[in-house]
Design a protein around this nucleic acid. Structure first.
Lengths: 206, 206
DNA sequence: TAGATTGTTAATCGATTAACAATC
DNA sequence: TAGATTGTTAATCGATTAACAATC
């Protein structure tokens, strides 16, 4: 049950379980089953039960899972039973959209700081933030103890921004620049590149 | 070599190979090896050779792969040796950022149409497009023969927009709304939800 | 030729699924 | 109690890796 390392592929499914459960809670549902979750997510019920069993026994035979209880368990496992501050570097269209994005609320995150190196942008307001000078990035991130960064600068600058973030203490990076980052093993990186997703689908189109 | 169905997990890696190769080409490189690709991508050289071998013999023993040649092969396999039109539904911050995004160029895509149902937005210009009325979505998409849609509306409307897109002939959807879509098996869906990526990383933070 | 790297096979590793006893 | 669904084991399935002959 505990102690053995959980495969990353399982960790990757937990946020999807959580999202679906929270939607069920919004629909005022009280109880669900591995089967119902499976249908809504398009994966097998056995897999959901197996994944959850790696962390404990959260269900009741014959009944299923208490939605609220399972949400709390998953929030705790994923460490989103708190609010993580995020630093956003790069205030172009994507960075601005993220600064204004309402979807972080109640899901464990909030944007805390915005940086850009363009003098025209520094000092302007975007969303609820004043854009700060990238030259102060390392120190400001360090002082605030921020662990999560989002990179929305051009590809040519992404690697250098990543290095600054890491120097400031960031340990998880969500990179919107279409380029692979080189980071030490103690830093996690996730990528968002819409083109990668699109190219994965065109293969199947006529 | 041919005829046997290629696993989707392999298809998912091909766009990453292509992106890395194109970056090498930008650096005026001529030849590469499975080993070098592997290092830049953080996967094993054997896997890259195995993946590519499912589609043909693209390399030379003792030498490696001609970057330009392999790019063309991958573009052809992924069907991005052409330009696919995209319809974007929902002109909020994210939809607007996508409409202005420069990153589609040379990668097989271009935004062709923008829709919203908000009368205040309809008729306004965003990027190079005039926002069209969602009521005309099905017909316009059908007439233009568009096969790819991006959904950037609120979660509550995403399922209904997906259904309209499909009715109009769309067969691949990139969904930015944080909700699972229910679609027929002949439609492919990919999801972009930054929170899902973030929650996958917090598990590993202290 | 000597050195390097591919393409491919076979072995290994890991993930998914089926099935069912336990039990609510 | 009868019915339902979990948690878990064992079997299956599929993906990754190691290794090397082929060959440029």
């Amino acid at each position: 049950m505990s102690s053995r390392t959980v495969p990353d592929i399982v960790i990757g499914r937990l946020p999807q379980y959580l999202r679906t459960l929270q939607r069920m809670a919004d629909e005022n549902r009280i109880i669900t089953s591995s089967q119902e979750l499976a249908e809504r997510l398009g994966i097998s019920a056995a897999q959901i039960r197996k994944d959850l069993s790696l962390f404990g026994e959260f269900g009741k035979q014959g009944t299923g899972y208490d939605i609220h209880f399972l949400i709390e368990k998953l929030r705790s496992i994923l460490k989103v039973d708190r609010v993580w501050d995020i630093v956003v570097v790069g205030v172009g269209d994507i960075g601005s959209a993220i600064a204004r994005y309402q979807g972080f609320t109640n899901r464990g995150f909030r944007v805390a700081m915005l940086f850009d190196k363009d003098p025209v942008k520094i000092g302007t307001q975007v969303g609820n933030f004043i854009v700060q000078d990238s030259r102060n990035l390392v120190e400001a991130v360090q002082r605030a103890g921020i662990k999560i960064g989002m990179i929305t600068v051009p590809s040519s600058e992404a690697q250098s921004v990543a290095e600054q973030l890491i120097k400031g203490g960031v340990r998880a990076i969500l990179n919107y620049a279409p380029i692979s980052l080189n980071v030490p093993p103690y830093v996690r990186v996730q990528y968002i590149d819409p083109v990668i997703h699109l190219q994965r689908m065109t293969y199947y189109l006529d």
